[in-house]
Design a protein around this nucleic acid. Structure first.
Lengths: 140, 140
DNA sequence: CTGTGTGCAAACACTTTGCAGGTGT
DNA sequence: ACACCTGCAAAGTGTTTGCACACAG
């Protein structure tokens, strides 16, 4: 067992998930890339055998267990990113900003919190998603 | 020519678009509903003849000309809403908050501006999309 | 051993493209 | 008259479901 699979395996068990080669590989990819991945990205990165359906199901499972969170995209497709240390099985904190670079196309989580928005009377907020599009530090 | 088609016809011409029955009908729907519509919503509302493809193309055209704007959805699908008076063919202002009610499922534009977010060095913002999910005034 | 994960096949849903004919200006 | 809009057919792409077998715990 090499060090990476030790990390992914532990992480999976922490989130009450069985550790399987597929899950470790996908999780590994998320740890490797700093930006958010779409289903398509994952398929591309893992050229070798890995059923398309398995990727769908794995993403859904990770999402349900709180290992990853959704990242909105302006094209209407969804991307996913690892939850940070701030998240556990029980509690989640996703009030950070997502940034999509229009040059390189990468979407990443910024270490910037979404300010509290004052809503009109009668509205109650549970979740916020802020996507900012522009040019990132690398492409600028 | 009834009063509604007068409105939609004028609006279409203002945005340099030909006035056709299909476009007027779709535009009429946007004027009627106060919330954002997905392609599917439009198909459902206009039960009668109206080709699916025409809806796709009409939405794309409206979007290109700046008559409507995208509204992000947490399910990964896109919705669209009319641009307000603030927008013209030349200039656009979409820095308002979108609110999706988790009870009734409707997404609408709030008259609340997105505050300016301070980004890390090197990042340059062009467009912001803020989606807040929760319970709306009607369902609360 | 038991419950869950995986791959395959197929169904299903969504979106785009090409083309011929119709329509707005 | 001309450019553009529309419907149809078909292709292309994305996603879900059912089932039999494999595998982790």
């Amino acid at each position: 067992m090499d060090s990476m699979s030790a990390v992914t395996g532990t992480l999976l068990r922490d989130f009450k998930l069985r550790s399987t080669p597929n899950r470790e590989e996908i999780l590994h990819l998320f740890l490797l890339k700093k930006y958010a991945l779409s289903h398509g990205d994952i398929e591309k990165e893992i050229d070798n055998s890995l059923d398309r359906v398995t990727v769908y199901r794995t993403l859904k499972t990770f999402l349900d267990k709180g290992l990853i969170h959704k990242v909105l995209d302006d094209e209407g497709s969804l991307k996913y990113a690892l939850c940070k240390e701030a998240c556990s099985v029980a509690e989640h904190h996703h009030d950070h900003v997502h940034f999509k670079c229009t040059k390189c196309g990468q979407t990443s989580c910024l270490n910037v919190n979404v300010p509290t928005i004052k809503l009109p009377k009668g509205y109650e907020a549970n979740e916020v998603n802020l996507l900012i599009q522009g040019v990132c530090e690398h492409c600028n």
